[in-house]
Design a protein around this nucleic acid. Structure first.
Lengths: 126, 126
DNA sequence: GCAATACTGAAGCATGTGCTTGAGTATCTA
DNA sequence: TAGATACTCAAGCACATGCTTCAGTATTGC
């Protein structure tokens, strides 16, 4: 990620939490690109070939393949080659992880919301 | 994003959908970085100053400020300067948007899941 | 007032990202 | 079996990203 420093710059999280951290980064990064989200939307209608994805997006087959690799690493999509055609489809696991992330963080954020309103009140009353 | 081509390469979505596309990109991109997720986790305990965030993360104040800008653009955090201290806090709007995205896409993906299993069956039976 | 504190802004650096082109390779199809 | 089709691989390019340093600027406390 292009750090100009030498230190790892991270002090929290244990071993297994680190694995999830990595997966979360892959997941959010994969979803961060509009072309990849468009691909997922297209695939949500059913499996498609690389060229079928490439054409409406106006990008090369190579670009689609590269996006697919990122989506596969994030467990948001899967693909397999049948003959000379690569068939791409959505995979729900990444989506499940996203739902889990949201669920896990909602409680924490709700707790924060309570604290926040308390602080705002405190602030307002001075 | 460093495209070497000239064309926009996007053909779907209308005007207002485009706005959401943009916001979704900001949101997912903001969450894609582990340091920013760590900042959000820290802030979920309550408001903190820039230096209070910087120290445990082992990064400079400047880096924290830069991350905060990205979190603020994604409506995941907010900050205001009180005296010489900038107070940073979580904002729920971005999180709400994320929940909405998940909800909106779940139905579509579930529909796809049905189609997928149908296709798999079809495939298996030949 | 004067130093310490808490940030801010501009610039720069190394690496990542999204995309391309061009040259393959494998698989159909006539 | 020749040619078309559907990718695949290796490079390379321009811009984005995450971080730094260094030189400010605005507040606060003595």
């Amino acid at each position: 990620m292009g750090k100009a420093n030498t230190k790892p710059a991270k002090k929290h999280a244990g071993r297994s939490a680190r694995v999830n951290e990595e997966a979360d980064s892959l997941l959010f990064h994969a979803l961060g690109d509009p072309t990849r989200r468009a691909m997922l939307d297209m695939l949500s209608a059913g499996p498609m070939s690389v060229s079928a994805l490439a054409e409406p997006l106006g990008i090369t087959l190579t670009a689609v393949t590269q996006h697919m690799q990122i989506l596969e690493e994030a467990e948001l999509a899967k693909s397999e080659k049948l003959g000379r055609v690569r068939s791409c489809r959505v995979e729900p696991r990444g989506f499940d992880r996203l739902e889990k992330w949201v669920k896990d963080h909602r409680t924490e954020w709700e707790r924060k919301l309570d604290k926040l309103s308390a602080m705002l009140e405190e602030e307002d009353s001075r």
